[in-house]
Structures are given as C-alpha cells and as structure tokens.
Design a protein around this nucleic acid. Structure first.
Lengths: 203, 203
DNA sequence: GGAATATATCAACACGCGTTGATTTAATTA
DNA sequence: TAATTAAATCAACGCGTGTTGATATATTCC
C-alpha cells in the first residue's frame, strides 16, 4: 500500500526508455513562442506550429496537453525580464523615469527569448483570461516590487498608470505599427518619455 | 448604348417595394457594434449577433456582405468623436494636457454610440488590418488635426506618443482590467495624467 | 389584380480547427 | 534477448464557423 510501486522492483528508478535530449519539445516551444508573439492566441494554430517545428500535429498535443497549456508554457514571463525591474529604485531619484523607460524598452524589444513571451502575453490578453491576469499583475506590481516603502493607494495608481502608458507605447510600436513611433530609436524615445514617466512616478 | 434604361419607362425611379423603415438593419448594426466592442473581431460570431438582434443568420449576410464588411460598418469612427479633438489647441497652452486627457476619456468612455466603435477598433487592431490602419491614423494624426503650425518630425513623434500612452491607459482600464486603474475616476486620472501629457506635448 | 422588388426563413455546404485513438519505431534497462 | 517505456506517425472525429442557395412572405408601383 502507500505509494504506487509497480512490480517488486527494489529500485525506485523507472525502467524503459529515458527521456531523450528533448530537442523536439524545445523546437515546438520555440515555434509556438514565435507564433503566439506574432499572430496572437487565436491567430496561432497548432497545425502551423507543428509544421514550423517540423513535427507531427499529434506530437504537440502529446508534449503539451492542450493549446491553452502550450500557451501557458510560452507566456511564462522569463526571470531575466522580471529581474530587470527589481533594482530600479536603486540610484538617484531624478533619473528614475529614465531607468524605468529603459527597462521597459529592453524587456519588450531586447533579445527574442525575453520579448517574445511578453508579446505573446500582450496579444493574448485580448482573448485569454490567463494572459489578461498575468499582464494585469505585471502592470500593477512590477514597478512596486523594487521599492519597500509603504504603498499608499496613490502610489499604486501612479505606478500602474506609468506601466500602462509604456505598454501603450509598445502597442503603438509593435502591434499597431504607427509609422512615426516605429521609426524612432530608443534614445529618442527615452528623451521624450523619461521626463513624463518621472513626473508620474515621483509626482 | 448609353445608360441602362429598362423598358420604355420615362421614369428613372425603380418599381417594386421601396426599402422599409430598415429597423432590422439598425438592430443588427447595434448588436454587432456591442459584440465587436466587447468580444473583439474573432470573438464575435455572426450567429450570435443575429441571435442578439433576433434576426436570421442569413439576414446579416444579406444586409452586410461579409463579416469584414459588417466590422467595417461598425468601426467607422463617429464624427462626434473626431470633432472632440478639433478644437483642442484653442485655449491656454498651460492646460493643453488636461484638455487632451479629457477628450480621450470622454471619447473612449462616454456614451456607447461613440465609445463602442472605438473599442471595436481597438480590439480589432490586434487581428484586422483595416482596424489596425484606422487606429494607426487616429493615433498618428488626431492630435495634429487641431494645430496649423508646421509639423516638425519631433512634434509628430510627440503627439503620436501621447496618443499611444493614453490608448495604453484605456487598454489597462477596459481590456486588461487592472484593478487599481479601473477603480480610479476621471478626475483622479486627469490629475495624474494631465501634467505628463502636457510635458510630452509642449516639451 | 399582377408584376416587381425588398424582406425574411430554412437547410445545407465546405472548411479549418482542437483533439483523440491506434499503431509503429526507437531507445534504455533488467 | 526480452521487457518496458518514450517518441513519432497516421487517420479520423466532432464541432463551430462564414457563407450560399432555394424558397416563402410581405410591400409597393403599374
């Protein structure tokens, strides 16, 4: 009784084929991440992900149990993106706005392993409840994670608004594709946005 | 030869039943507007729109030719919303930011006949090319329409960014539903956002 | 009345989707 | 070798979708 030990094997190790290098699973995950980031949740089909990863359709369902589970595996916000926001409040207060804008731009437009899950979450937030909650948490509390002051409701609102506005800039650049905003480079954006974010955050 | 004159009728008016009060068409349009605004383009099914309007499915396809055409008819940004932005530059410059924020909040959260097409366009921008272009134009040039100065590229970028950020706030409130941002009322938002938008617009 | 036209209803098509089951091949251990 | 287990492939199901055609019922003009 107790735990389910099959047969009389005295070894706890399971027998049979060990999981291989799992290169296929990773290929599926990367194809899915790219597709979810580019086409959104409903615009992504398992069949196309499978084709992109050069894998059978049923294989995708065997690794991940469903399309929702596959999406959940993709949109897990990577640690590297979260850590980017943890040390924002260290440093001179008069440059807080600039540090925040830089952190956002780097997270959303840096290496694809970091930005694609965020884009997938953003696009999915319009359709998928889990993505909506995750993005809500990100907007609400990412900028608050670095500070250890008492968060009066006004500070919570201010950080939430600053995050929303920067997400709006990302939407303008990478979803809607407003030409003028797309054409601007990071330093140009920082020069204009940093003072405004600064004003919102520190009153 | 010439124009197509049927029979020898000397009257250009067509015979047969004249279009009725068209109450059904309007009911379909209102149901579609609400659904596109609430559930987005892909989340809206013609069958549900027809059911909501208490109309047969094929009727919807008879009035509007396709789902895309129905969506196009819905997301036409109403004149009242556009006019809201035409007189923004009349008045003291030190209150420009406040006027802009007020115009956005009123357009996006005022009466549903005005805000629903905007919400439909916003949600559709993630899937539909036409909606994306329309929203891009709105973000790019709505704030510029009121001014008659020479638009240096810097001013175009600044107005585009201000619009994107305010769209981001709307996304946070009405799409993602960030609790703190949803809970804030208009005056609270204006108090925090107006100075930041002011700073972006007038440098 | 009778022709002409708009409005409304019914049933079905073709397609792509997520998902499932059966089956075969490959790798690992007793 | 033989058993065990994972990886991979094939074919299909059930469902909901946008869309279409045939058909019946009103309404308007000659």
């Amino acid at each position: 009784m107790g735990v389910n030990m099959k047969k009389e094997s005295n070894s706890t190790a399971r027998r049979g084929r060990r999981p291989g290098p799992n290169s296929t699973r990773r290929a599926v995950l990367e194809a899915a991440r790219a597709s979810f980031a580019k086409h959104g949740f409903v615009g992504t089909t398992i069949r196309l992900v499978a084709a992109e990863a050069e894998v059978d359709v049923a294989q995708v369902m065997q690794f991940f149990r469903s399309k929702d589970a596959l999406f959940a595996a993709v949109m897990a916000i990577p640690e590297s993106a979260l850590e980017r926001f943890n040390s924002l409040y260290e440093g001179p207060d008069e440059h807080l706005g600039e540090r925040v804008v830089r952190a956002f731009l780097t997270a959303w437009e840096g290496v694809i392993e970091e930005s694609e899950p965020l884009m997938a979450t953003l696009r999915g937030a319009f359709v998928n409840d889990q993505a909506r909650n995750q993005l809500s948490d990100f907007i609400q509390s990412r900028l608050l994670a670095g500070t250890n002051e008492n968060h009066c409701s006004d500070a919570r609102l201010r950080t939430g608004l600053a995050s929303s506005m920067l997400v709006g800039v990302v939407v303008g650049r990478r979803v809607i594709g407003v030409p003028t905003i797309v054409a601007a480079d990071h330093e140009e954006l920082i020069r204009i946005l940093a003072p405004a974010i600064q004003q919102i955050l520190v009153q």
